[in-house]
Design a protein around this nucleic acid. Structure first.
Lengths: 377, 377
DNA sequence: ATCTGTCACGAAACCGGTTTCGTGACAGAT
DNA sequence: ATCTGTCACGAAACCGGTTTCGTGACAGAT
C-alpha cells in the first residue's frame, strides 16, 4: 500500500550498507554518516539510535568507499628494504604480527611492499600514496639522514620512525633505548673484572649506531674505564664483517678481553674469529651483543644479548601512526622502550689478561684446542 | 565565449582522473572507461586514442574507486600464522619480496595480516574479504585438510596454495618438489655407502610431510635399501623435537649411520643430540635436510640442505593468484619447482657401522671428546 | 505577534570509477 | 524509399560512502 517502501533486502552482496541502516531507521543516509562520524549537527538522541542500530545490524563502513571521498583508506604502509644483508629478517615475523594486530584492532589494514633502497624505495612509497594504498608509513631502520622521512615530510604524509632522527623536527617515533643496553653491557663486563673492553658498532649510516656508541662510552665512563679507540670499530652488519672486526681488535697491541657488539649478526662472527685464534668465547673472550635474534640460541656458548621485543615495537608503531593520521601532533607521539638482557654463556670473568692474549696471538698458537694447530711446527 | 568549457584543471589532489582524460579528448568518461577495459562496443580507433592519451597524461585508475563498483581492489591477501614455532620465519622476508614484486609489476598490492591458527585465522580472512581488502589469497603452509581452502572454496574467493592438497579438486597451487629432494638425499647418502638411513619427518598435519615421506621411500627403493620403520619418525618441527627424535633413532637396536630430515630446524637438533652421544656430525652420523634456512651456515659442520628459493616461490604464487582472480581456470594454474642441494659438511661416507654406534651408545661413552666424560669410571 | 538565531535533519551533490540504457548514423536488404 | 540491424558512442544511473546546502521547527528576544 505504501509506495515509499523501498526493498529493505540487505543488498545482493550480503553486506550491510549505510543505506540499509538509514532505511531501517527511516532517516537519511547522510544523517547516519554524520552520526557515526560525530558531526556536531546531530542530536545525542539520534547519535545513540544510529550507533545502536548500526551495531545491531553489523554495519561496518567499507574503507575504500570512504576513501574515495576522504582520501583515507585506513591502511598502514610498510615498505621493506630487501637488498640489505638480512638486516631485518629475523624480527620480521614478530614485527609484522605486532603491526597487524594493532591495525586490526583499529579496523585498519597493513599494506606491505618491498623495494631496494634509494630511489626505488621512494618511488614505491609514492606509488602507494598516490594509489591511496597507505595513509601513512612506518619507517623501519632509520638512517641518520633518512630520505624516506624527507620525502614524507614534503608530501605531508604522516609517518612514524622506528628509531630516532638526529634532525628530530616534527616527526613521530618509537625507539628502543640501545644506548642503555650498551651502557649496561659495559657495566656488566666491568663488574666481571674486564678492563680492556672493545666495541664493534654497526653501520654508521644507521641512526642507531651513533646512539649505541654514546651508550658504550657512557658505560665506560660510569665504570671508570678508558675507551680505547684502537679497539673500537664500526660498520659491521654481517657475520663476516663481525669476524673481521674481531680479528682486527684482537690483533691490536692491547687486545680486549671483552667486546660489546652493537648487532647480533656481527657478534656471531666473533665466534669464527675466536676459533681462528683458539680463544674460548665466554672465557678468553667475553661477548655481549644486542638484538636478540634466534641465532643467539644456536651458537655455543649461547650469545648473551639484549633482546628487543619486536612484536611490541610493531604494536606501538602502529598505534602511533594511526594517531598521527588521525591528526594528533607528531611531536607528542614519541615513545621508547628498553631492551631486555638475555644472558647466555658468552660473557663471564676474564680468564686471561690482555697481555696474555696478545702474546698468545702473536705466537700464533691456541690455548684450548686438543689437536695441535697453526705454527710452522 | 563557449559556455561548455569546463575547468580542465587537473583536480585539486594533483591526480589525473578519468574525467580529466575524457575532457581532454572531448568524449564521455564512460567511453574512456570502456575503452581502457576493452569493452567490445568501442571502435579500435577510439580505443587507441584513449590509450595513448591516458598514457600521456599519466592516468592510472584508483583501485579502490574501481573496487566500489567491481568489488575488486587488486590486492593480494596473505595471512601469516604467528602462533606456530617460527615455522615460516626464516623465509618470510624473501617470500614477501617475491610476492610484492610480482604484485607491483601488475599494479596490485599486498595486504598482510597475521593471526593465530584455527577459527581466528578464518575470521581474519573473512574480514579481509568483506572489507574488500583482498581479492584472493595466497595460502602458505598447506595442511593436509586445510580449513582455509575449504572456507575460500565456499565463499568462491580465489586462492593459490603454497603446497599441494591431497584433495586436489579445483584449486590452484605452487609447490616445491620435496619428494624429489628427499629421494635425492637418500641416493646421495647411499652413494656414500650408507645402508641404515633414518628419516625424521615434519608434522603430519602438514601436507608436505606425506609427500616427503613418499620421496624418502622412493629413494630407498631406488637405492635398493630397506626402509626400517624403527628408525623413521615424524612430528619434528623444532630443534628440540629434532634432538629428541635423533636420540630415539640412535637408541634403536640398529641405529642409522645417516638421517634424512624433512625440515632444517629439526635437523639442527641433531647436532645437540650427536654431541650428547659423542658422535661427530658428518662422520659418525651424516645428516641431510631440507629448506635451506640461514642457520645451516651457522652450525659446524654446515648443514647440507636442499634449499628452497622463497622469493621465486612468492613471485610464482602471486602471478598464479592474479591470473586466478582474473578468471583463468584454477586447474590450469599449477606449477612446481625443484629445491637445490647446498652441500655442507654434515654428510659424508660413514666412519662407523651401525653396530659400532649401537655398542658405543649402550656403553655411554664417546668417540671423539678429548676430556673424559660419562660412565661411572 | 514578529524577528532572529540555533538545532537537527533531509535532499542532493560529490568522490572516481563502472555499467546500463538509449539513440543517431550508417549499411545492407527489400 | 523504407525497414532492420549493427556500430559506436553519450547520458545517466550506480557503487557506498561523505559533505554541502537548504530549511522547517522551536526558543528567546523585541
Amino acid at each position: 500500500m505504501d509506495a515509499s517502501v523501498k526493498s529493505s533486502a540487505p543488498a545482493v552482496s550480503g553486506r550491510v550498507t549505510i543505506s540499509d541502516v538509514a532505511d531501517a531507521l527511516g532517516i537519511a543516509k547522510g544523517t547516519v554518516s554524520r552520526a557515526l562520524n560525530d558531526y556536531p549537527d546531530i542530536s545525542d538522541a539520534t547519535r545513540q539510535r544510529v550507533r545502536r542500530k548500526a551495531e545491531a545490524m553489523g554495519y561496518h563502513p567499507l574503507a575504500h568507499a570512504q576513501a574515495i571521498r576522504t582520501g583515507r583508506s585506513r591502511a598502514i604502509g610498510l615498505v621493506l628494504q630487501t637488498d640489505i644483508a638480512g638486516a631485518q629478517r629475523p624480527f620480521l615475523s614478530d614485527f609484522l604480527a605486532g603491526v597487524s594486530k594493532e591495525a586490526s584492532a583499529a579496523s585498519w589494514t597493513l599494506t606491505v611492499a618491498t623495494s631496494a633502497g634509494g630511489a626505488e624505495m621512494l618511488a614505491t612509497m609514492e606509488r602507494l600514496i598516490n594509489e591511496r594504498k597507505a595513509d601513512g608509513f612506518i619507517v623501519p631502520r632509520t638512517f641518520s639522514d633518512d630520505p624516506r622521512a624527507n620525502l614524507l615530510r614534503c608530501l605531508h604524509v604522516p609517518f612514524v620512525l622506528y628509531g630516532r632522527l638526529s634532525d628530530i623536527q616534527d616527526s613521530a617515533w618509537f625507539d628502543i633505548l640501545g644506548e642503555d643496553a650498551m651502557c649496561d653491557a659495559v657495566l656488566r663486563l666491568a663488574q666481571y673484572g674486564h678492563q680492556k673492553i672493545g666495541f664493534v658498532n654497526g653501520g654508521l649510516e644507521y641512526n642507531f649506531s651513533q646512539i649505541r656508541e654514546d651508550g658504550f662510552r657512557e658505560g665506560m665512563r660510569q665504570a671508570g674505564l678508558q675507551a680505547d679507540p684502537r679497539i673500537m670499530t664500526a660498520g659491521a652488519m654481517t657475520s663476516e664483517a663481525g669476524a673481521k672486526a674481531t680479528r682486527e681488535l684482537m690483533s691490536s697491541p692491547e687486545p680486549p678481553t671483552a667486546i660489546v657488539f652493537a648487532v647480533d649478526v656481527a657478534a656471531l662472527g666473533a665466534y669464527a674469529a675466536a676459533e681462528d685464534f683458539g680463544l674460548a668465547i665466554g672465557k678468553d673472550l667475553s661477548v655481549i651483543s644486542y638484538d636478540g635474534i634466534p641465532e643467539c640460541e644456536w651458537v655455543r656458548p649461547k650469545l648473551t644479548s639484549f633482546r628487543v621485543d619486536s612484536q611490541m615495537a610493531g604494536r606501538r608503531l602502529a598505534e602511533l601512526l594511526i594517531r598521527n593520521v588521525r591528526g594528533e601532533d607528531p611531536s607528542t607521539l614519541r615513545e621508547t622502550a628498553k631492551a631486555t638482557l638475555w644472558p647466555g654463556g658468552s660473557d663471564g670473568p676474564p680468564t686471561r689478561t690482555s697481555d696474555e692474549i696478545a702474546r698468545h696471538i702473536r705466537a700464533g698458537d691456541t690455548f684450548t684446542s686438543c689437536e695441535p694447530t697453526g705454527g710452522q711446527a
